[in-house]
Design a protein around this nucleic acid. Structure first.
Length: 732
DNA sequence: CTACCAGTCCTTTTT
DNA sequence: GGACTGGTAG
């Protein structure tokens, strides 16, 4: 119990981290040290010998959270994180399916469809079966299919009460057949297929249940029905499930998350231990009291009240603007004052309910010359040019992949139009083969054009057979004509740069990550090709979604995107009825409660200073709308607020905070690892330069000699582990 | 076959 | 306001 690991935890946290081997539900409020408890729990279990690394299954929702967990674990214990199953639901399902691809009825190198790919697959299907897309919009169908799967329902399990639903189910069935034929799976399929194998093969299930003695789940409130069922499959007689979550931060009901899983878990597993983490280490009490008061207006809660020792702090500032531009300008002025007062711009966040609001704010920041960074939008592997390049690669790997075929058969344009494609599709349908192989049934001009394309893919496959991954990609970029196409395009410079970046990404994937050990299935089967592994990696980890990391810049994002983050100063903008709470959510009580939780999440992002702003008028959908201030203002404690009128606002008061003096003290994680402080001339904290990744900072070091590795946070490329025997690093 | 223009529809999003 | 789709002209 009195392990040094838990010494720095408060009593609640320590109790949670050192619970006996039984099921437990940890209600972890915002800023209560949730990740810390989760990782300390794992470290403690390992250290006390309750379980070996192989007996740990830890699940998160995002790659970021999984990485963070591994990172913290390595800093606590000298442990091989790869022996544990730590990852996202989807990442682990992929690992599982690669290991059991035969049972799953999949080709070993099955490829993964992201949301975009899924939609185009559905569109193609609809076209093929002449579906009226007025009556059955592909987006809706795609959504319907995913929802069914998230509910663990195959076409035969879906209830059909009307003809429209029957039609949708039929299309769902056809979609499944199409995916199976093409050897691809969508995100939901990864989960559902894994679940079904576990459910249907008793021996396999028993094997995993014996293996995983400790199952730990992060953000449990965000799990959907299927994910919960999946977790149950892994839980056997000897296993303990440790679920961490916060019902007040459940903001993903719209995509199938069931907060009810928390209550179900307590009932289904007869959970004896429920621990509330209510001590908040993030915010001052004016901020926290506001959050508490607001969320108390929700009816359906498990009940929790955050407290802090940090004192009242400053009041929450409320600003009413006359128009959206004025609101943004005031915000910018305020942010600049904070910055002049010593606060880093990256410690300032501007939050909004919907993406459409970001434009005005961006304009204001841009005009004022304040650097900013917008989260959200297209990520690296989702960019069109990258998807095009990947489509070539996927097609080389798997010619059955009609989605990829369609994406690039005429890109760059090579004179293959709708007519030729139609001919090809008909031929493919008639012969019951893929588009790729149907080309031999096509004659005439269309036949020669498409034949040329197919031949090109075949040549590429042969040419690259003995090349490394990055050489392969380089060659494909050239010979596909993609690079050439973007080089001649007026606005193509960025795209060319991204394509070159893809080569670097492949290089670091192979040499540094040892091409994704995690994605490598198991020991018993053949090893995947680096290309196949890279394509999987690209699908499961879409990459960074913010432009220009590293620069000190104001952080702009939706409230959803802000979950899990924290900032010294936070602006919550557009607090008007219809916007926040959003009009589409106001009609039903559940929707409104979710909006309130969303507001709760937004408020609890702030450490020291919180601004709430709204505007009398706003340009929305090209029209001026007159807004009423959000009902949430009536649900906040008046004593914590300070109303600022437009007149005496920005000019009359100065920031009272001494930002420089109150720099956050970074608490060191308790470490049992030997202090690897000086490996090959490197030390923690050093600034280094890498020929490919540019400048970065050494976060940690491990190993020695040829095995020595350094973890480096690069300004432009994020955190990476580099093998020092390979990497070209210079200390700067 | 491609390029351009008009009409439509607007939450939130990770994998 | 703007992204995306569908139709039509070249």
């Amino acid at each position: 119990m009195s392990s040094p690991l838990v010494q720095s935890l408060n009593p609640e946290q320590a109790r949670a981290a050192t619970l006996p081997n039984e099921h437990a539900l940890i209600l972890a409020g915002a800023g209560s040290g949730k990740t810390r408890v989760l990782t300390t729990r794992i470290a403690w279990l390992l250290q006390q010998g309750h379980v070996g690394a192989g007996g740990i299954l830890a699940v998160t929702f995002t790659n970021k959270a999984a990485k963070e967990m591994k990172l913290r674990l390595t800093s606590m214990l000298p442990v091989n994180v790869n022996a544990m199953w730590i990852g996202t639901f989807h990442g682990l399902c992929n690992r599982f399916l690669r290991a059991h691809y035969k049972l799953a009825g999949l080709p070993q190198t099955f490829q993964i469809l992201d949301t975009q790919d899924q939609l185009s697959a559905v569109k193609r299907l609809c076209k093929q079966f002449n579906i009226d897309d007025e009556q059955y919009p592909p987006k809706q169908l795609s959504w319907f299919i995913s929802n069914c799967k998230d509910d663990a329902k195959r076409p035969k399990d879906v209830e059909a009460n009307d003809s429209a639903t029957r039609k949708k189910i039929e299309l769902y069935q056809l979609y499944e057949e199409q995916c199976q034929r093409e050897g691809v799976v969508d995100f939901a399929e990864l989960m559902l297929r894994s679940y079904e194998i576990l459910r249907d093969f008793d021996e396999l299930r028993t094997h995993y249940q014996r293996r995983f003695q400790h199952i730990l789940v992060d953000e449990f409130q965000d799990t959907n029905k299927l994910q919960y069922a999946w977790l149950k499959m892994f839980s056997g007689v000897g296993s303990s499930m440790f679920a961490v979550g916060d019902d007040d931060q459940s903001i993903y009901a719209f995509r199938g998350a069931r907060v009810g899983n928390m209550a179900d878990f307590v009932r289904d597993f007869s959970v004896q231990h429920q621990i509330k983490l209510e001590q908040n280490y993030r915010s001052y009490s004016n901020i926290l009291d506001s959050a508490n008061e607001l969320i108390s207006h929700n009816q359906r809660r498990l009940g929790k009240n955050l407290r802090t020792d940090q004192g009242a702090g400053e009041p929450v500032r409320v600003f009413e603007a006359t128009g959206d531009l004025a609101e943004a300008k005031w915000m910018v002025d305020e942010a600049r004052q904070l910055h002049r007062g010593g606060l880093d711009l990256k410690e300032i966040a501007v939050l909004y309910r919907s993406n459409a609001q970001s434009r005005v704010i961006e304009t204001a920041l841009f005009n004022a010359g304040v650097p900013y960074r917008v989260y959200g939008g297209l990520r690296f592997f989702e960019r069109a040019e990258i998807k095009h390049a990947l489509a070539y690669l996927r097609l080389m790997e798997n010619p059955l992949d009609d989605t990829s075929f369609m994406r690039v058969v005429n890109f760059p344009p090579r004179g293959i139009g709708a007519r030729s494609i139609e001919q090809l599709q008909d031929a493919a349908k008639a012969a019951g083969v893929s588009l790729y192989s149907a080309v031999q049934h096509i004659t005439g001009k269309a036949g020669t054009n498409i034949g040329g394309f197919v031949a090109k893919i075949d040549v590429l496959r042969e040419q690259t057979v003995s090349l490394t991954l990055s050489e392969t990609i380089k060659l494909v970029l050239e010979h596909s004509g993609l690079l050439e196409h973007y080089r001649t395009e007026r606005e193509g410079a960025d795209r060319v740069e991204n394509l070159e970046e893809l080569v670097s990404a492949a290089e670091s994937f192979v040499t540094i990550e040892g091409f994704g050990k995690e994605e490598q299935a198991g020991s018993d089967d053949e090893v995947m090709s680096p290309l196949a592994a890279f394509l999987t990696h690209a699908a499961l980890e879409a990459g960074d979604n913010m432009a220009d990391a590293g620069q000190d810049a104001v952080q702009m994002m939706t409230v959803h995107a802000s979950k899990g983050l924290e900032f010294d100063a936070v602006f919550i903008t557009g607090l008007e009825e219809g916007l926040f709470p959003h009009e589409n959510s106001q009609s039903d009580a559940d929707g409104l409660e979710e909006e309130r939780r969303l507001m709760y999440v937004a408020i609890t992002r702030a450490r020291k200073r919180l601004y709430l702003t709204y505007s009398q008028t706003r340009l929305l959908h090209g029209q001026t709308r007159y807004g009423i201030k959000s009902r949430f203002f009536d649900e906040l404690p008046e004593a914590c607020l300070r109303w600022i009128t437009p007149k005496n606002s920005a000019s009359t008061y100065k920031p009272q905070w001494d930002w420089a003096a109150s720099k956050k003290v970074v608490e060191a994680a308790p470490s049992l690892a030997p202090k690897a402080s000086d490996v090959q001339g490197l030390a923690k904290g050093m600034q280094v330069f890498h020929t490919k990744f540019g400048e970065g900072k050494v976060l940690s070091l491990e190993g020695a000699g040829l095995d020595a590795r350094a973890q480096i946070n690069f300004n432009r490329h994020g955190t990476k582990w580099l093998a020092l025997s390979v990497a070209k690093l210079t200390v700067i």
